[in-house]
Nucleic acid binder design. Structure first.
Lengths: 159, 159
DNA sequence: TTGTGTGCAAAAGCTTTGCATGTTG
DNA sequence: CAACATGCAAAGCTTTTGCACACAA
């Protein structure tokens, strides 16, 4: 087992523990489906939609329904283990949230590529605007759209 | 006619002229529906969805179809006269874009209130990240989410 | 045992499309 | 008058819901 694979296994154990605490404290049931979906998400590295997750689990012959996928995604978003995005399309996109520093996205409208970046100025803006507008700012979403200059092959499913 | 009303009428004339040029240069037809929808949008001050625009036009006994509303919205977005947003919900929201300085949004997840703000640091981030990631950044979307501290009545249609 | 969670399918909500008709250029 | 835009309704897609059954506590 490579070092990074081992790191992933460790993270999966950690998030399962966090998830367990959340389920316990909210008096929710620990079903195998919930843990399997959580694990499935943490083995992915992309920004997927609910259907892709469902299809992938079905392809592995795991018996799960769309309803459970959607319910569990919402549950995971509510305990901050998963982040939900709207990259300008109707379909919501998700990604794992634990063990990854907060980041934003830059999206190629031509080929659909999604890269991540980090900028401390966002935090400053959140603090300042929260104070100015009298808001308790809890989270944010910053997406930059444009065209990338390398390896850009147009996709039908553009953004 | 008040001064601000007069200013609005002037803006409406301006955007119609811009729209006309766009239609001409793209060899598209100048239909009354297109102009009426444009005017309707510029008389609004909110962040509306396609259905609300359609309903409002119907309520004024204007004969228009959803298809035309959606088609025209897309057309107006493509010529930068209208901006399209996804405020964390599935339904797309729109607002007029001409004559208003570029701004971002702060959204109350409790009552649905949407306020606008401006911060020059966003432009800096766009420039820096575009260069760093080798992207031609054309536009962006920054939404801050949280709860507002005044006049906050929970809405069923939350964000 | 008790009630929450699940699977399945149907329904709901937003958006797009096909087709016949109308209208712009 | 020829092509394109429109209205209407139906279809498409993503997401939610209702109901009977399963299973965690």
């Amino acid at each position: 087992m490579s070092q990074s694979t081992e790191a992933l296994e460790n993270i999966i154990e950690e998030v399962k523990t966090i998830f367990s605490s959340h389920l316990e404290s909210h008096k929710l049931r620990k079903t195998p489906e919930r843990y399997t979906i959580l694990e499935e998400i943490y083995r992915r590295t992309d920004h997927f939609d609910a259907e892709a997750l469902y299809i992938h689990m079905k392809a592995q012959n795991y018996r799960v329904s769309r309803a459970t996928v959607y319910n569990t995604l919402e549950l995971l978003v509510s305990c901050d283990l998963v982040t939900k995005h709207q990259f300008g399309k109707n379909t919501a996109r998700y990604e794992k949230a634990y063990g990854y520093r907060q980041h934003d996205h830059i999206i190629c409208v031509n080929c659909g590529k999604v890269l991540e970046f980090c900028d401390p100025r966002i935090q400053q803006i959140k603090n300042m605007m929260g104070e100015l507008m009298e808001f308790n700012v809890t989270h944010h979403s910053l997406n930059l759209y444009g065209t990338c200059k390398s390896d850009c092959k147009p996709k039908s499913d553009e953004y």
